[in-house]
């Protein structure tokens, strides 16, 4: 378990450090965030045509209310946590990739719900918006990451037949990948 924890923290710090580099911000994070705003606008226009996306900003053309999707709300950090958790956990590359593909969809799917819900909460009540934005949704997204990881761990093939794979051991015994 200690080994998993150390590997997880090291990967987390590395991936997060990479995410903060100007190059990745410019070529991945900013386009990703803009795409998130556009997908959110596309989904919302199904029932609310007065919504548009400009860059990373989701705006109501009816009342001019707008939300800007910033770091921490674009789901990138949550995805990084998921990647670090799956890569640090002993499993085959195939299972890591399959888990990541499904996990990223789950995390980003909930994140789109977060963005859309905050967009409407902000138009309704600013205090509720702040509460949901700063505290509740942050916890829910991390809960989503944890649940995705738990489901993924449960679906891993059992070692040597019928026995389910153990969680990483507490000792410093080597972990098979």
């Amino acid at each position: 378990m200690i080994r998993f924890f150390v590997a997880f923290m090291a990967l987390l710090a590395l991936l997060f450090g990479l995410e903060l580099t100007p190059w990745l911000q410019r070529w991945f994070v900013e386009p990703w965030t803009a795409a998130l705003a556009h997908v959110s606008a596309l989904l919302v226009t199904g029932f609310d045509p007065g919504v548009t996306a400009i860059g990373k900003v989701l705006r109501s053309t009816t009342n001019d209310f707008a939300v800007s999707i910033e770091a921490g709300c674009n789901g990138v950090e949550a995805t990084i946590v998921l990647i670090a958790a799956m890569f640090a956990f002993p499993s085959s590359w195939r299972h890591k990739m399959l888990g990541l593909a499904a996990g990223i969809v789950a995390v980003q799917g909930l994140n789109i719900i977060r963005v859309i819900s905050l967009f409407y909460l902000g138009q309704w009540n600013r205090d509720v918006f702040e509460w949901a934005h700063l505290y509740v949704w942050q916890a829910l997204i991390m809960l989503d990451v944890l649940v995705v990881w738990l489901i993924w761990v449960r679906t891993l093939p059992r070692r040597g037949g019928d026995e389910p794979p153990q969680l990483p051991p507490s000792s410093t015994a080597p972990i098979t990948a």
């Binding site: 921490g72 950090e77 946590v81 942050q138």
Partner: peptide, 8 residues
């Protein structure tokens, strides 16, 4: 400390 630690 603001984007990762409080939730993780």
């Amino acid at each position: 400390g603001s984007l990762i630690l409080p939730a993780v």
